[in-house]
Design a protein around this nucleic acid. Sequence first.
DNA 1: AATGAATGAGGGTTCATTCAT
DNA 2: AATGAATGAACCCTCATTCAT
Lengths: 204, 204, 204, 204
Amino acid sequence: MSTGQTRRGNTRQRIQDVALELFSEHGYEKTSLREIAEKLEVTKAALYYHFKTKEDIVISLFQDLSRPCDELITWAERQPRTLETKLEVIRRYNEALRSAEPLFRFMQENQAAVRDLSIGETFKARMLTLFGLLKEDDAELTDQVRCITALFSMHAGMFAMQHVEGDPEEKRKAILEVATELVTAANPPNRRPARPDSAQTASP
Amino acid sequence: MSTGQTRRGNTRQRIQDVALELFSEHGYEKTSLREIAEKLEVTKAALYYHFKTKEDIVISLFQDLSRPCDELITWAERQPRTLETKLEVIRRYNEALRSAEPLFRFMQENQAAVRDLSIGETFKARMLTLFGLLKEDDAELTDQVRCITALFSMHAGMFAMQHVEGDPEEKRKAILEVATELVTAANPPNRRPARPDSAQTASP
Amino acid sequence: MSTGQTRRGNTRQRIQDVALELFSEHGYEKTSLREIAEKLEVTKAALYYHFKTKEDIVISLFQDLSRPCDELITWAERQPRTLETKLEVIRRYNEALRSAEPLFRFMQENQAAVRDLSIGETFKARMLTLFGLLKEDDAELTDQVRCITALFSMHAGMFAMQHVEGDPEEKRKAILEVATELVTAANPPNRRPARPDSAQTASP
Amino acid sequence: MSTGQTRRGNTRQRIQDVALELFSEHGYEKTSLREIAEKLEVTKAALYYHFKTKEDIVISLFQDLSRPCDELITWAERQPRTLETKLEVIRRYNEALRSAEPLFRFMQENQAAVRDLSIGETFKARMLTLFGLLKEDDAELTDQVRCITALFSMHAGMFAMQHVEGDPEEKRKAILEVATELVTAANPPNRRPARPDSAQTASP
DNA sequence: AATGAATGAGGGTTCATTCAT
DNA sequence: AATGAATGAACCCTCATTCAT
């Protein structure tokens, strides 16, 4: 009864959960649909009732879990490109990652596999957009590196710091702090004070 | 004859070259031995004459290409743990990566696959050693994040910046600069100013 | 349609039949799954739907076909260890073998291959149990040889006598007769008639 | 030096030794030339210098080791077909087997594999000849079974009795005793008392 | 007397996917 | 909403064998 009740109608969701778990644990290619099906105690064919292909499962995971990131981008694009906005982006991105940690771990550790999945392009494009939101238009190379590093450290940070002792929440804060520093450093306050040609915020 | 001459004795090397190219391009799991063999115009069985298994090819690549890193670590462990040493480690590591870029791209993008290869552990251990060399023993969380980020930015940096325009050499320099900054920031100059033992905050 | 009807639901059984036929004809190692599949006009993969491995096919054959022998042992272990029981064991065993002749031919002719299959141990253990049921506890070496020979002659007998002319049923009877003789000879009627210790040849 | 000296000129012999050991231990099909070569610390190609094929190794083993049996047959065919001769055949055969135990273990346990080697026929033919030497021309079925059993018990006996405790030499004697009994029983003394046409033991 | 390098054929096994039921 | 049965393609790997050196 307990299982019977649990199972009603939410198989699709259960597939996603188990798939993400296995994908992020063993990798995309090494996780077979058989494994997923077995862990769910259904048949492989059942998976195909809910998803057209294996790739489709990943796509659905990506769409469902990365919506917060999408919304963040949409929001950010409407804001003024000030440092405050950028720091807010960093702050919110850090938050968004928290709820989708396994997905991002998966994306991070399976880049090669993800690359020729259809979401590969999407993901890359979003990274580039975020990058564009953080950096100045004509930023120097080092500043660009700072922004990219800030982004990456948030992605990879949590898994990379598994072996470092400390409360997860504290770690996340520490990561955010460093990322904030990097972005701040990449956006010097009074750059090009009197240059008319790229008069972004033309002041009198 | 031109091929005949080319082929004698260097097949092993050619296998490594092609394998690394394909592994880093398509990923480890998606690269089949058939592909490698075909590109080399030999039989799959020929690969097995030179390497016991597919994994063995990766192992050989890793051993051959990451020796500079190993040597770096050996060297660093004998140096005093000063900031200068640490910055020298960063500098040299950056250099070592240059000659093994495809390998590190491969390691970076196939973490999930590499994890259950025998070199997975080795690689992880080396990262931890490097991390240990960069950070202070009782460093705060943020400083630890700085060190890890420095390391990672050097790994991932080059591929992550493929879309950024600019001379590769300049990019590398920029990455090194940021990494240097991070490590410097993580090693504050006058911590524990006059300790008799480890009197961290012992001040009159 | 005639094939369609035949095929539904009994593929597993058909695999077993064909496999046993080929295993016993060409040997275990020389029979490839491709051959089995081709003879059945299915794909190799179809075999794997019904059996986890090649070894699994053998295991299933063994379990299905040697049940009578198992039951015989179970029965015999509950009987008094008299000569009558022993002869009944021989009689029934001869009968049991009849229905599983190809399997036993296979086991007999592929001992080396069977040895490192999981059933190898099982089979050997059963032989030892049977042997233990036939011989006296402190039987002399020759009597032990008689019992073993009786057992073996029943196993190997039928194939060994393929070239001897005569009705198969008569041959079986002849084999049984000799085996009976051997076991009878191995169980002398009045051994240790009034033994204080083990006065084997105590005669007035 | 010790190995250098040992190795001179007797590689062929060493190959035979190792091959027989492995064939009889793991079976013919499961023993690869690679294994043999590795155990000898030579290359596979070296085996091919001494033997044309894998089968050739087995053939050579068979020819070398079963010569005593051949000679026994040659001898026996020239003797009168008396019971004494037959018992002498049994005795000598038992002796011949002793020196070639691993070969016979191999033949016994790899019948399926041996069957389609060229020696398969040869071996079978020899068995039949021996059988013909032991049995009366018009022997009844049971007597034929006795003869075959005698032969088989000598072949299989030693391996079958591995688990029986006792001195190997005593076991061999016991086996010989039972085989002798069987052959004796299969050759009743006063059969066909007054038949001139097959006057084997012409009585006055 | 033996090796180094390679081949062609085939082995068992696993995969994502399909489709009638 | 899901299953049972099957497929085709590919996988990694091993084998006996060859041949120039």
